[in-house]
């Protein structure tokens, strides 16, 4: 029995990732199913997502525009673009830690690559984002927001966020399976991050000596990658540099953690 080949952890992790991506028809189908389950039997279907986002943005814009004494023609597009980006980032983070737990019945009955479930949750949140994005269209038309070549950069921003959603989603999902209080921890942190990140407020109203609060906030940089193109301006080189660095660290870190703990996931569930 000595002819049994053994594969290293790294090779097994790599196979899992490769197989997971190639099973795209499974994770895309499952993520659509998630959307349908959430809005089952309602007339508007998934467009409930769009409607609730529209109500949030249109009412918040009116209130906070006056509170911050900003011109509505500038504040409305800014808020809409920020909220779209923030709702994507925050839902990816809150979903992350529960990914393997919510797929327990699959993980315990059938062998599928672990990455399939990360991709399922990520795809689900991106589908919701593409429903939400319709909210900004009337704002762009009404307030004459410029649509130009820079607008296309928002696809680059989405790609960067997608990659980070997979890498950091994997880390969160593994941690969340082992330590069950991670989900609560993230839910409470996300509230704090929401107020610290320029979502409702613009960095421009922050005094010069406090600008570092925005510069040091990684979420602000990811948000800028989506928001600026939607407003027809390019993101800063600084935002690109920071997000690129985080992406590279995330890829390396998540691969290391995944390779190390992959086989333990089903034991922890």
């Amino acid at each position: 029995m000595n002819n049994i080949p053994t594969k290293t952890r790294t090779a097994l992790a790599f196979t899992d990732i490769k197989d997971g991506f190639s099973k795209w028809n499974i994770w895309i189908l499952l993520s659509w199913q998630d959307i349908r389950m959430r809005y089952r039997r309602s007339t508007l279907g998934p467009f409930w997502i769009t409607l609730s986002m529209a109500i949030t943005i249109y009412t918040m814009g009116l209130l906070y525009g006056h509170l911050f004494k900003m011109e509505l023609a500038h504040y409305y597009p800014y808020l809409a673009a920020s909220m779209l980006g923030w709702s994507l980032i925050s839902s990816l983070l809150t979903d992350g830690s529960g990914i393997f737990i919510e797929n327990e019945h699959f993980l315990k009955q059938i062998k599928l690559p672990y990455i399939t479930f990360i991709l399922r949750a990520t795809a689900r949140n991106f589908i919701i984002f593409f429903h939400n994005i319709f909210v900004i269209i009337p704002i762009i038309i009404f307030f004459h927001v410029s649509v130009n070549l820079f607008t296309l950069l928002f696809l680059v921003g989405l790609l960067v966020i997608w990659i980070n959603a997979i890498t950091f989603g994997t880390i969160l999902a593994i941690l969340g399976t082992r330590f069950r209080d991670i989900t609560q921890l993230i839910n409470s942190l996300i509230q704090v991050v929401f107020f610290l990140t320029p979502v409702m407020w613009s960095p421009a109203i922050l005094p010069e000596k406090y600008q570092y609060l925005v510069k040091l906030n990684p979420f602000a940089q990811f948000l800028e990658l989506l928001r600026n193109p939607l407003l027809g301006t390019p993101p800063s080189a600084y935002a690109f540099a920071v997000t690129l660095a985080i992406t590279l660290v995330g890829i390396a870190g998540s691969f290391f953690i995944f390779a190390r703990y992959r086989a333990r996931i089903t034991y922890w569930i």
């Binding site: 080949p5 053994t6 009955q109 086989a263 089903t266």
Partner: peptide
């Protein structure tokens, strides 16, 4: 589904 903690399968 469970990878053995020790030993091998083929």
């Amino acid at each position: 589904i469970y990878e053995p903690t020790a030993g091998r399968i083929h």
